[in-house]
Simulated scan of single mutants.
Amino acid sequence: MRKIRQLLAGPWVPPAVGKAPYLWLLSLNFFIWKFFYTPPTALEVLLLVLTVLVFVPMYFASYWLRNRKLVPVLLATFALGLAWAPFNFGACTFFIFAAAMCAGIENRRAAYASIAAILIGASLIALVVDLPLSFLMPTLAVGTPVGIASVMDATVRCKQMQLLRKQEEVEHLARITERERISRDMHDLLGHTLSLITLKAELAGRLLERDPGASLREIRDIETNARQALAEVRSAVSGYRQTGLQHELAQARTALAAANVTLDAQVASFAIPATAESVLSLALREAVTNILRHADARRCEINIALENGVLSCRIRDDGERLATAAAIERGNGLRGMQERVVALGGQLRLEVARGLSLELRLPVGAAA
């Protein structure tokens, strides 16, 4: 009983086709025109009711079935027309419905061939039984355009569904890309700043007893850096960055100085495209963060130049704690840096000898 109630509740046709299929059922009125001038017998009334009860479920099922599963419904509908044709010229309605049902055949050539087979079959029946033009003309004149229009409409709906699925896929990929971007940015922004805050907090603790004034200055710097980190996080989530390479260099100098690391920065003066500047800034931030966390370095060299139309950034330290590049390559920071550089057609190279050497090369054309 529950399944019956669910079946009766619908939907009886796919929502994509709208309400029109319910309207097309009014075409069955042609089937009763004969009885306006010829009173039906009790047997005809009974057969008429049974025919409608059999046809209507098949009609709604035809909107859900496809290809081979649709064939029994097509044959049954054609059989109803065949059975009624000698007795009621309104039987042409069933041939028209059968032609429209061919829209469920996804192979369009097969669909049009099925329409032709149905209409030719109806014409042969008309010739064999010697049916009047009132049967043959509606079958051909209405069945042909209705069948073709149904197939074309199904084709359009199919393409629309494919386009919708592609749009959903693009939106899904865009969401994934945005989440990855935010993940990389959060790692780069917070990793660097939290490392700096940790160093300054340790320094403030060491200075607390012997130099309270210096300790207070470090605590104030911690507050300033924390507020700046919050602003940068908000900016990154919004997709905009207001700070550039010079700002990152200043931040790097401050952070490295707090860790007693001398910074030697050589930055050539030339215009840097906005996208390239963003990538270089984040690469510098990640490299400095790695030095603060892992390198135990005393000196860091940064060289940024324009070489034959290619932006080159080299960052090298003299740290001793890192033995292999694999120790860094597994981290999210370098992976995020690599993704940004590759997205702009650049290259990222990492070497470990005495300290860590990182080289980033980015074509200016790709970054513009």
Rank of each mutant, 00 (worst) to 15 (best):
K69E: 05
K69C: 11
T93A: 08
W84M: 06
F87W: 15
I105M: 12
P57W: 11
A61S: 14
A83E: 04
L80M: 08
S62N: 12
V56I: 15
N88Q: 03
M58N: 14
A61P: 05
N67A: 11
A61K: 15
R109E: 02
T77D: 04
A99G: 11
L65Y: 10
L80N: 00
G104F: 11
F55S: 04
L82G: 06
S62L: 10
F95P: 00
E106I: 13
C102Q: 14
V56C: 12
V71R: 08
F89Q: 09
F55H: 07
W64F: 14
G90W: 06
F87I: 09
I96S: 07
A98S: 13
L82S: 09
R68Y: 10
G81Q: 01
K69D: 12
A103T: 02
R108H: 05
F95V: 02
A79V: 03
Y59K: 10
W64A: 02
N88F: 00
G81W: 00
L70Y: 08
K69A: 15
L65K: 09
P72Q: 12
L65E: 00
T77R: 00
V56A: 12
A83Q: 06
R108D: 09
F89G: 03
N107K: 14
L80W: 02
P86D: 02
M101L: 03
A85S: 15
F97N: 00
I96W: 02
I96H: 07
I96P: 00
F89V: 14
Y59E: 01
A85G: 04
V56K: 10
G104L: 12
A91G: 02
W84P: 01
C102F: 09
R108K: 15
F55W: 12
L82D: 01
N67V: 12
A110P: 00
N67G: 09
I96R: 01
G90C: 04
R66G: 02
A61N: 11
L74M: 05
E106P: 07
F95E: 05
W64P: 12
N67R: 12
G104S: 10
A98C: 10
I96E: 03
A83D: 04
C92F: 10
W84I: 08
Y59G: 01
L82Q: 11
A91V: 01
F87Y: 14
F94C: 01
W64M: 08
F78E: 02
I105W: 10
A103D: 03
A83H: 02
P86A: 06
G81L: 00
N88A: 02
A85M: 12
A110Y: 13
L65W: 05
N88L: 07
V56Q: 13
R109S: 06
F95L: 03
T93R: 02
G81R: 08
C102Y: 11
G81N: 07
F94N: 02
E106D: 14
